[in-house]
Design a protein around this nucleic acid. Structure first.
Lengths: 203, 203
DNA sequence: CCAGCTCTAGACCGACCGGTCTATATAGAC
DNA sequence: GTCTATATAGACCGGTCGGTCTAGAGCTGG
């Protein structure tokens, strides 16, 4: 989400901090209110950065900043899922633990924040530019990761993909319902039922 | 979505047409681009109505029009699900057929339109006013309907609710993925896997 | 036939939008 | 030191936003 940024070859400045703050601020505001409803001035205020910094680090403006936020969010999702898989050992357990993480994040924010990727995705006409590509990548790579996990547990490739698709669908949808109901129940239910579904497909 | 509107008691004008056109136009544009990104001028142009008409029929402005669109969309979802249940006979079959309907709608629009309720839901800070209430109602009543169907097939109430929650979550999430991938596969997969899950819970 | 509504029509408003631009601070390179 | 590239800073711009307001068209009950 706010990676320390690869060091430049020759100049090697100390900063890059404003860049990271901008991405974090954008991601957070997009989660709460969506892409179109979030003004640059709001992002700038939260990141405590002037407009000049934004257009210095992201010449493409709001869309480029959005794309960076999507890549960061996707990376966070996959890193979390991978960590849970390492702990649980199998795909079903990983998905259920992962759902618990998502539920926890929602609760922490008082159900103000949802999945940043999904929110921005729905506001974009598919197949446009950088931003759309970043969204596609964030979601598809997460599905691929989940499918690999399920396949590693012994499911045939086609079925593994169908299950991964359904699992991520259920979690994304559950985050919508959870936000609307101001309750984590849908996310935990989706996690439990999806885990059950994966186990029954393998057993 | 564009119901003929209950006849007034005494006046009984012929029109009310502009009102319906406004709701339909708003629903469609919200599906494609979201709530915040859709300007009133765009809605007005598509509905071929002047601003005066909008504020005559919806004194609450954009939010009130949005709420009406959400109620209409929720009603359409439930009517479709009910019709499929009548045809299929059981809950699992109804959910799978319903998923097919959703997939068909996405395809028809060239994957430009998603679920109007979900899109608007993510842009709203939960628990606000009319609009938020309309969104809540649209989603919750659909879950309740689905839970009743599953319970009628013999599932214990708690489990039926968990399954209904997961089923709607999976379908909503799948519509997001489908739009992003420009493919109906996620929706059909979610329908098939969810039906399987419901059947296995009843068996 | 006209008084009184429902409804259409669109000019107009202040606020805010995303984006551009110039000026300045800061920190190596030499 | 001076030079140069990076980064910060924010005034400024035209356009569009949602919303208000006045004017009139069209119908209808009395």
């Amino acid at each position: 989400m706010d990676a320390p940024e690869i060091k430049r070859m020759t100049p090697a400045r100390q900063t890059g901090a404003a860049r990271a703050r901008l991405i974090a601020a954008a991601a957070r505001l997009f989660q709460e209110q969506g892409y179109a409803a979030t003004g640059l001035s709001e992002i700038l205020a939260l990141a405590e950065a002037p407009k000049g910094s934004l257009y210095h680090h992201f010449p493409g403006g709001k869309a480029e900043l959005g794309a960076a936020a999507m890549r960061g969010a996707g990376g966070l999702l996959r890193a979390t899922l991978r960590a849970r898989h390492a702990g649980a050992g199998d795909a079903a357990g990983a998905v259920e633990k992962f759902a618990g993480d998502l539920a926890g994040w929602l609760e922490e924010s008082g159900f103000k924040r949802g999945c940043p990727v999904a929110t921005v995705a729905l506001e974009q006409t598919p197949g446009e530019g950088d931003l759309a590509e970043a969204i596609r990548g964030a979601l598809l790579r997460t599905i691929d990761l989940m499918a690999e996990m399920i396949e590693a547990d012994g499911a045939p490739p086609g079925r593994a993909r169908s299950l991964a698709l359904t699992a991520l669908s259920a979690l994304e949808g559950a985050m919508i319902l959870a936000r609307v109901e101001a309750s984590a129940e849908p996310v935990r239910a989706a996690g439990a039922e999806t885990a059950r579904l994966i186990r029954s497909a393998l057993g």
